[in-house]
Amino acid sequence: MKILVCIKQILDPDMPARDFKVNAETKEAERGGANLVTNIFCENALETALQIKEKTSGKVTALSYGTDDTEDSLRKALAMTVDEAALILREGDSNPDAEAVAKVLAAAITKLGEFDLILMGRESGDWGVGQTGGLLAEELGLPSLAFVDSIEANDGTLTMRRQTDSGTETATVTGPALALITNNEFNVPRIPKTRDVMMSYRKPLEKFSLADIGLSAEDVSGSSFYEVTDLSIPTKDVQCEFVEGDSIDEKIGVLASKIQPVVAANS
């Protein structure tokens, strides 16, 4: 079974809120002292792929569209025991729209060969637009399923479980197919073994330019789908009233008296 996982490197979503600044000019977040990390759902996708590989054998390829910095994310994927990695070097707009990214990924995937399963994270922790996966499925003409949290592979048949508003659904598909992965308790990304971290430097990580995959910068200029026209940090001022009291009983009494009216009004 050949699995390809698309991963995105993003600005650390755990950076302290007070460190978060936006650049009004470029309409992007300032990197400041924050780090670049692999998007968590992409790591969930990598973990899902590796678990399938471990159960059935096969090969996992990681693919990313990014800059030289993105090599770190791909190395980490290799350390998680992904077999090979490919990096398409971004040209032009530093925040390309979802359609541009989907086109690049589709061209890269066609170049890299055939895959039975393509996995992506459900959305990224930076912009969180969540459109790339669906668009890629369209570009490649594949059936897709979103919010998938576990996959089993059996002789070419894939059984996917996904989360819905009210519970879960199970779907079957004969590959190739695309799944957008969400987190659950079973696909928490593994911590790479140090041995594998060391090995990751010996594994293949190929870099391609857009021209290598048959595209030009104009083809994927990055703002023909949508364009960010404003980015700002909302200010919200609420003053929390901390419940006071001499004893804990008293405090709880005050708390209850604040809650009770809302309960009464809504039941």
């Binding site: 650390d12 755990d14 302290p16 809120a17 007070r18 460190d19 002292g33 780090n35 990390v37 911590i191």
Partner: peptide, 20 residues
């Protein structure tokens, strides 16, 4: 450890930076 790897400090979720 994960935080050390990506953020060079062991306190994931800290609300501070190194100069606050």
């Amino acid at each position: 450890i994960t935080s050390l790897e990506s953020r060079q400090h062991p306190f994931p979720g800290t609300q501070f930076n190194r100069t606050d």
